[in-house]
Amino acid sequence: MRDWQRQLGLEAHPEGGYFQRIYTSPHTVPTPAGTRPTATSIHYLLTRDAPRGHLHRNRSDILHFLIDGGPVEYVMLTPDHAVERVTLQSGTRHFLMVPGGVWKASHLVGDAAQALVAEVVTPGFDFADHRFATPADVAGLPADLRLALAPFLPGTSHPPPD
């Protein structure tokens, strides 16, 4: 197993896991929240010691490409309040697009030791466009949806269901 964290110089990510920005477009585009690069990209790594990315949303679309490891499952709360689960796994599905404004989280599945993902954000990422979910954000959802999303709220310690 490759030590991607050391090899790529990844740092702890506020969402969970590890990351390193690898590209910021020199071109910009106006958005309602201000000027943003047309695209940014990161390497994002989940490991056994950091197996989960917390529930959050971004204004921009995010493209996810599984590079190594996995499987890794993405859990999304769709605009019509359904939970959608998509698993990226080598040899089957290795790409996912999450539209801007959609709540999403991720976690390693089964006995996966790690998952290295490249993400492309367009328009480019800015922390002003990012928000972590709070218990208040899911409080009005039906009990089954609150239960499905609870493991991904920042500050929770119980593992997500496999």
Rank of each mutant, 00 (worst) to 15 (best):
M97H: 09
T35G: 11
D129G: 01
P99G: 04
R57V: 02
V117C: 00
D68S: 08
V138M: 08
V29W: 07
D80G: 14
G155T: 02
P26W: 00
A50G: 11
P14F: 11
L77C: 10
R131I: 08
A33W: 04
P30E: 15
L55M: 06
S106C: 10
L63D: 12
S157N: 13
P151K: 00
A50M: 04
G100V: 03
P159Q: 14
T35P: 14
D144E: 15
H107K: 02
Q7L: 15
A105S: 06
V120L: 03
P79N: 11
R21I: 01
D61K: 01
L63H: 02
L141A: 09
G91H: 05
A105Y: 01
P79T: 15
R6F: 09
I22H: 12
H64V: 07
K104G: 08
Q5K: 12
A113Y: 10
D111W: 02
A39K: 03
N58M: 08
L10S: 10
F132A: 07
T28F: 13
D68A: 06
P99S: 08
A12H: 10
H130W: 10
T87E: 06
Y18M: 05
H13F: 06
Q114G: 11
P135G: 11
T92M: 07
F95K: 15
F19A: 12
Y74F: 10
P123D: 12
H13Q: 01
D137G: 05
G124E: 02
A128D: 03
G100F: 00
V120R: 11
D129W: 04
P151Q: 00
L8C: 13
G124V: 03
G34C: 01
A33Y: 09
G69L: 02
G53W: 06
